[in-house]
Write a protein that binds this DNA or RNA. Structure first.
Lengths: 134, 134, 134, 134
DNA sequence: GTGGTCTAGACCACG
DNA sequence: GTGGTCTAGACCACT
């Protein structure tokens, strides 16, 4: 299973699902057009309430990451075009700034922080090409 | 005022205060040993309840960002030594990964993400030396 | 009820709750994975405000004694890993030293103090196996 | 100076003074009959408010650790007989139990806790004979 | 129903 | 005047 949920984590399960799906799409574990498990199937697999999965799917649809075709199911978008790019890019920058400050208080310089980012990207690339042909 | 709060933001006020103080310390707007506004003063300035400020101060003290001297007030730590460095460094990396995925879905490549990080750091450095001698 | 609180004691109620829970966990009255009373239930039982219980639970969670599963409740940690072990071990030693001095002024020699410690441990062991199989 | 105060510590200064004096007496740094600094002298030396020192002296007198002879000064008691021994012995036991539980949650067994107590006693004895003849 | 956050207002310990 | 604690009651997010 490419999705791994931790109910003990502090961030809400629906967010973990959203991130999990986004991650899988970004890494090519889920390909454009591919069908996702239904809400109830996924809820059973993950042992969570189906309302939780439904909420995650709704937000993913709003983000144009997935598409619902009524009567057919839910699919990974063929042309993912997130809607409010500007707003979310700003969020992204705010987050980076927050974490930069956090890093500072952890004793990391800006350069060390940058190195950490590079390392994360490297690890990410390293594990990316898992399934582009499956 | 170096701190400003948005009571309608989604993240809690006490967290905004914590981040604001950490940011001010990291940028030298608040110098080691400097006295902070008292709990009730700051509460009045920010128009929030004093318990909210108290909670923020307590968490900052646990993080060794600030120190309380009973009956005298609250001061920026002289030697800030955060305690759970390992754990929090891991959180930091997890966060970066999450935002890397988010960036991907915003149409940014890893390189573009890295550029954004560099830009944020640059802007940060640019505004850092605001008050080291004031 | 394995927890009882004295609202007129000098140490704060939330600390009494923390100690009570830690004690119950240490003695096996609360087993790993077991569900605790909800914040509001316990508040009612103890006749204290729910915020007071919430604060105690939050500190216990930071200490990894308990875990919160959102929407489900609060549970005794399966793998308790306190974080600041070194710092807190030092506090422990300082405390012992303080009490050793106190014992001296109560007319106890170091040996008698040690005997008292042994006795406390003995009484503790004696009551420990209360419910490992319940 | 045999007394060392840390205003940044979490426990109140007056308690630190009490403990400092008790410790000095227990170790023979202050001998029975010896004169203590006056309240105002000590307050100046320690750079604390004289009310704080006064409070500490009052409690030390109640504990029969020191004696005030009006017009002459304050002296270490010749026959130290603390008053409410039973009550305070119970406090002592409660404290030990609290710290035993704390040790448990720090991953220490009862035996390791006992070893720690022995070590503290040993270190104490090691530094005790500093000034019995001065 | 679960915990998390916030307000308003009160009291206490400390310096 | 400083922070620490507590209550009563409210609203929100999550499952």
């Amino acid at each position: 299973m490419w999705l791994d949920i931790n109910p003990r984590a502090s961030d809400p399960i629906y967010l973990q699902i959203i991130r999990g799906v986004k991650s899988a799409v970004a890494r090519g574990l889920l390909l454009p057009g591919e069908k996702l498990s239904s809400v109830r199937e996924l809820a059973t697999e993950l042992a969570v309430n189906h309302n939780t999965v439904a909420r995650a799917y709704q937000e993913l649809e709003r983000d144009k990451v997935i598409e619902v075709i009524v009567g057919r199911g839910t699919f990974v978008s063929l042309n993912p075009k997130p809607s409010n790019i500007e707003e979310r890019t700003q969020e992204l920058k705010d987050s980076i700034k927050t974490w930069l400050i956090e890093a500072h208080h952890l004793g990391l310089s800006a350069d060390e922080f940058l190195d950490m980012v590079k390392r994360v990207i490297f690890e990410w690339n390293d594990s990316e090409e898992v399934r582009h042909d499956n």
